[in-house]
């Protein structure tokens, strides 16, 4: 089972440049939907990749759903060669995305992201508008329900900001 606090603290304490996306980001904004993993978009520069490998080494990252015994190691060459990694770790499921469908890279997403404090750590998280745009761009039928909820949240936040009930 994913330990959200442990994974987020681990990424933040290692000074990894990442933006929370997906279900955890939606929860930050008020979603009540259940999610089982932590999804992040990470910066692809070498220092950040090295920090990711160092931080996750202790929790034994492995490709989620892959057969046991494959010669997979989350190291710098592997991360430079690949882009998106769906991982299982000792602290739970973690998706590391170098690029997000409908959103882009860390650098493209950062200007619109919001800064929040989670478990005492500062983190960046996609805004509600970014989450909605990404889900619309992905166009997956399974996202429709989540998309509807996000739009309801956005409407309620807008109403709250404008002082309406």
């Amino acid at each position: 089972m994913t330990d959200f606090a442990a994974l987020i603290r681990r990424l933040s304490d290692a000074r990894i440049e990442f933006i929370l996306i997906g279900g955890v980001a939606a929860t930050v904004h008020g979603s009540v939907r259940l999610t089982r993993d932590v999804d992040v978009v990470y910066a692809r520069h070498p220092d950040n990749i090295r920090r990711i490998c160092d931080a996750l080494g202790a929790v034994h990252p492995y490709l989620r759903g892959a057969s046991k015994g494959l010669p997979f190691h989350l190291d710098v060459p592997t991360m430079i060669t690949g882009l998106n990694f769906t991982l299982v770790t000792d602290e739970g499921d973690l998706d590391l995305l170098g690029e997000m469908t409908g959103g882009g890279t860390y650098e493209q997403l950062l200007p619109g992201a919001v800064r929040v404090e989670l478990y005492g750590r500062p983190c960046y998280c996609l805004s509600v508008d970014q989450l909605i745009a990404a889900k619309r761009a992905a166009g997956r039928p399974r996202d429709i329900d989540a998309l509807a909820e996000l739009e309801v949240i956005r409407d309620r936040q807008t109403a709250s900001d404008s002082g309406a009930d």
Binding site: A5, V24, L34, T35, E117, L118, Y119
Partner: peptide
Amino acid sequence: VDERLRYLQRLLEFA
């Protein structure tokens, strides 16, 4: 925001 994530964790444990 912290409470929302703690609630999510409890929900996941329940599931």
